[in-house]
């Protein structure tokens, strides 16, 4: 993945940041370009996400405000107080159902290198409201870029010392070294997202195979890490029963269902404006062309298909796990 970075934009404000120097040194062949604020490069009007996805640039920036935010309603895995934070915008993978392609005009990766400010804000949130969940991996994959970002490497020791702060790392990657090289942290859940092989092959470009991700999840579980499974979005296909049935068999052949922390299920849904933009980017994509329903500004599958798919998956998963670990995700996002 790192081989693809040929341009790095560096905000003047973080030009002297040690993390900037380390990351830039990883890409000796990249053009390094100074910029005032990342907004001068990222997400300007008249940019094309799909074209930029061919060759994304990396933007190193400082996140000034809004570092820790309340999650949208319906986003959570049982905790009372839920927050998310994004050290990075955009994902190294290219999943056709992902809301990021509808949310951003630019496919460049923005990495906020001022991790310490995020950590301060998490501490401030803890002091203000008490025990809370902090979700990473909302606007990016938590671990996919780890060799470059060393995000987990920095954040895990911090959470290890704060048992009232629960961390979810959400990922489709197999970059687990930051986890395997340390003792498990009881207040951290490593949540792996899955779709069936058939969907993976069609809609998830650049994502490691289902088999490999299952292996990594199982390995982490054996090492004592809390593992979550995220079947979100559930995607309706003609063969969804066979596809999801096979996926669940695959997963639970390796992952111990009794030791699972949580499972969340969420059907495919996008805010209408995101859906429209994604459809304009990928008009040849059947996912955006088929039957849809619109409700409260969200586009999703027709209600009956949605219900059938969801009920089937919930019932199937019930063969392995009890309902206490289930969480329905109805937040306006799909990653």
């Amino acid at each position: 993945m790192s081989r693809a970075i040929r341009r790095i934009y560096v905000e003047d404000e973080v030009a002297d940041h040690p993390r900037t120097a380390r990351i830039v040194s990883r890409f000796p062949r990249a053009e390094v370009i100074s910029c005032g604020r990342y907004g001068e490069v990222f997400n300007r009007r008249g940019q094309d996400f799909r074209l930029q996805k061919r060759r994304p640039a990396l933007i190193l920036a400082r996140k000034h405000r809004g570092r820790v935010l309340e999650t949208p309603a319906g986003y959570g895995i049982g905790g009372e107080r839920n927050y998310y934070f994004s050290h990075m915008l955009n994902c190294v993978y290219d999943c056709r159902y992902c809301f990021l392609q509808g949310m951003f005009r630019s496919a460049n990766y923005v990495l906020f290198v001022n991790y310490e400010d995020f950590l301060d804000d998490i501490d401030a949130t803890l002091a203000r409201v008490g025990e809370s969940w902090f979700f990473s991996g909302y606007d990016c994959d938590s671990l996919a870029f780890e060799p470059i970002t060393r995000f987990a490497d920095t954040f895990l020791p911090f959470f290890a010392e704060r048992p009232r702060a629960w961390l979810e790392l959400r990922t489709k990657s197999v970059q687990a070294r930051a986890l395997t090289e340390r003792e498990p942290i009881p207040n951290c859940v490593v949540a792996f997202s899955f779709t069936p092989e058939a969907v993976h092959g069609e809609l998830e470009r650049g994502v490691p195979s289902v088999r490999r991700r299952i292996e990594v999840a199982a390995d982490l579980q054996r090492r004592g890490w809390k593992i979550g499974l995220r079947f979100d979005p559930l995607l309706h296909t003609e063969s969804y029963r066979a596809d999801y049935g096979e996926l669940f068999e695959q997963v639970f052949a390796a992952v111990d269902p009794r030791a699972l922390h949580s499972i969340s299920l969420g059907v495919f849904r996008l805010p209408k404006s995101y859906f429209e933009r994604a459809w304009r980017l990928y008009p040849e994509e059947p996912l955006f062309a088929g039957p849809q329903s619109e409700h409260d500004g969200m586009i999703s599958l027709p209600a009956r298909d949605e219900r059938d798919l969801f009920d089937f998956c919930r019932d199937q998963l019930g063969r392995w796990v009890s309902s206490e670990v289930f969480h329905l995700c109805s937040a306006p996002a799909s990653r």
Partner: peptide
């Protein structure tokens, strides 16, 4: 004012 032309292809020469 500054602008940043994106290169979504292999540039044919240095930048």
């Amino acid at each position: 004012r500054a602008w940043y032309p994106p290169a979504t292809f292999a540039p044919p020469c240095p930048g």
